[in-house]
Computed example of a mutant assay.
Amino acid sequence: MLDRTEQGRSTGTLKPRIAFLGTGWIGLNRMEAMVAAGSAEVVAVCDPSEEMRSKACELASEAEAVGSLEEVLDIAPDGIVIATPSALHAGQAIAALERGIAVFCQKPLGRTAAEVEEVVAAAAKADRLLGVDLSYRCTEGMTRIRDLVRAQEFGHIFAVELEFHNAYGPDKDWFYNRTLSGGGCLIDLGVHLADLALWTLDFPQVETVQGGLFRGGRRLGGGSEEVEDYAAASIRLQTGTSVRLSCSWNLHAGQDAVISARFFGTEGSAQWRNVGGSFFDFTAERYRGTAAEVLACPPDDWGPRAACAWLRQLSLDPGFDPGACSYLHSAQIIDRIYGR
């Protein structure tokens, strides 16, 4: 006879018991979406800020507020959502996975490709689901473009151009400490761009990577302990595709943000971009010659979509998804741009 957990997973009716480690803006947003969907039982919240813990408990009144990761693990949730500073991600994820707990982590999964590889290996060994909040994959526009690219609607994609320029910078000091963050705007924003390119093109092999890092307009040398506020890279894929990406903090952008991904093919092209400087509103179009077709436009509640997809999968099967191996590919590109 199946026990309650096995029965629930076989029918897709089980509400996984979820803990939240880090309940700042992003953690609360993901929690709110899960609670609103009625698809999770939030059993624990952990954050160093009493104010943030209180806000989390307002959303999930049955959750236990605890003071450490060890206390969270002792509650033995089915899954844990990690939204803590970057330096903690790999260690916290591995600790949870080794206790048989599935993980959904904010990006970056690790500060280096080596850390990412360790987490993925831990998930595979524990046979537990691992997800990363690469949320731009889940925008309607990028999903449409990816489907069209993989259906070869644009012929051979020979060039990709991506940018993410933020007119502001992070408001927490740890972002500017390389030991704590792993880097500057490249690991904060560029990881999204590298992932979007590889994910859309179905993860081709990378041949060459060349990049440059800047701080306050000065080019940073190898081994610099300063974190960059501007990064640019040129990547050549084994398919012959040329990928260029650039990202920045505190750029004179003329608006809050400039975010876009352009895919150029022999039979057409497509563009995904933010609208009016927004961090949240995106449009997507496909082009053939001078003709343009709208693929997607606001509104689109894409933010918590990756987290909710992980939760749905967890309710069906908590086992390791080999797709998690893809997280290493973009981490390796970021490492190569940093010269690591």
Results as ranks from 00 to 15, higher is better:
21 L>T: 03
24 G>D: 08
42 V>F: 01
55 K>D: 15
59 L>G: 02
64 E>C: 11
71 E>F: 00
72 V>L: 06
73 L>W: 04
74 D>Y: 11
76 A>C: 13
82 I>Q: 09
83 A>V: 15
83 A>C: 14
90 A>K: 06
91 G>C: 06
92 Q>L: 01
93 A>N: 03
98 E>Y: 06
98 E>N: 13
100 G>L: 02
102 A>Y: 02
102 A>H: 02
104 F>G: 03
106 Q>T: 12
116 V>W: 03
128 R>A: 09
131 G>M: 03
132 V>P: 07
145 I>G: 13
147 D>C: 03
149 V>I: 05
150 R>E: 13
150 R>C: 06
152 Q>A: 12
155 G>F: 00
157 I>N: 05
160 V>C: 08
161 E>I: 09
162 L>W: 01
167 A>Q: 10
169 G>R: 08
185 C>N: 08
187 I>R: 11
190 G>A: 08
191 V>L: 12
196 L>N: 10
197 A>K: 07
197 A>E: 04
202 D>P: 00
207 E>M: 09
209 V>I: 09
211 G>I: 02
213 L>M: 03
216 G>P: 08
219 R>P: 04
222 G>F: 04
223 G>A: 08
223 G>K: 04
226 E>R: 11
227 V>N: 11
228 E>R: 03
233 A>L: 06
234 S>P: 01
235 I>L: 02
243 V>S: 12
243 V>K: 13
250 N>W: 01
251 L>C: 14
253 A>Q: 05
255 Q>T: 12
255 Q>N: 08
264 F>P: 00
266 T>L: 11
267 E>K: 07
274 N>T: 15
288 R>P: 07
289 G>M: 13
289 G>W: 12
291 A>I: 10
292 A>N: 04
297 C>E: 15
300 D>G: 02
306 A>D: 10
309 A>T: 10
309 A>H: 12
309 A>P: 04
317 D>I: 03
320 F>H: 13
321 D>S: 13
323 G>V: 03
325 C>D: 11
327 Y>F: 14
327 Y>V: 04
332 Q>A: 05
333 I>G: 10
334 I>R: 07
339 G>Q: 05
